[in-house]
């Protein structure tokens, strides 16, 4: 049986630099893929290429046995991307920010309060995001993952700005997602507190 998500023969060139060449990996339901490598090695670029923001020089991604390029919309509908810049509006409250997601993808807007509660930022729900600390803003961004009904989680350095309790919490959330049959691709520098089958790709 072919893996749920796989990449074949990826080559990505940015400007004059070749970030990676002939890269292959495969990932099944319930597995975590860690992208490792020093700064500037192309971890974020690889995530962007998966989303389709960057054109690959060669190679393709396959999802559920078919090329992603042939089913881009269905693939994106099943994916949520936690980028380095969170995409949250500093002038809006956490609830207003998260409600907007329901315009973009399948989203459980009715559970926003429960998600904020779990991430420990419920009492900030009516404050503009600019008045929250960087770690609290990151927690609001993580609520998107809990609420989006997507099986692929792409995460770019998700532990940035989180305190140790937040790191454990995020580790638990990712573990739960993987146990329920999702998959997760994460760019990370440090060891991650996730208890699940893990594959590694070093760029």
């Amino acid at each position: 049986m072919s893996p749920l998500f796989s990449a074949h023969n990826l080559t990505l060139i940015r400007g004059e630099r070749c970030l990676f060449r002939e890269l292959d990996f495969a990932l099944d339901a319930g597995e975590l893929l860690l992208l490792e490598g020093r700064n500037g090695s192309g971890k974020t670029s690889l995530l962007k290429a998966i989303v389709g923001l960057l054109e690959l020089e060669t190679g393709e991604f396959r999802w559920q046995g078919a090329p992603v390029s042939a089913q881009r919309q269905a693939f994106l509908a099943d994916l949520v991307w936690l980028a380095h810049r969170t995409g949250l509006k500093p002038d809006l409250t956490p609830v207003e920010n998260l409600s907007f997601e329901s315009a973009l993808r399948a989203f459980r807007s009715q559970d926003i309060d429960a998600a904020l509660e779990r991430l420990g930022v419920l009492r900030l729900r009516k404050l503009p995001l600019r008045s929250l600390s960087a770690g609290q803003q990151r927690r609001v961004a993580l609520a998107r993952l809990l609420l989006a009904q997507a099986s692929i989680w792409l995460m770019d350095e998700p532990f940035t700005n989180l305190d140790s309790e937040g790191r454990t919490l995020l580790g638990d959330i990712v573990t739960e997602h993987l146990e329920s049959g999702g998959l997760c691709i994460m760019a990370a520098h440090q060891e991650v507190p996730v208890d699940a089958p893990t594959r590694r790709v070093t760029l």
Partner: peptide, 25 residues
């Protein structure tokens, strides 16, 4: 999780959602 069907919101929801957010901003 992958077997559950993923419902994409309609085009109008996308249009009005973006419109609403920008007006709010």
């Amino acid at each position: 999780m992958s077997q559950q069907s993923t419902q994409i919101p309609g085009l109008l929801a996308g249009l009005l959602g973006t419109l609403r957010r920008d007006l709010l901003l």
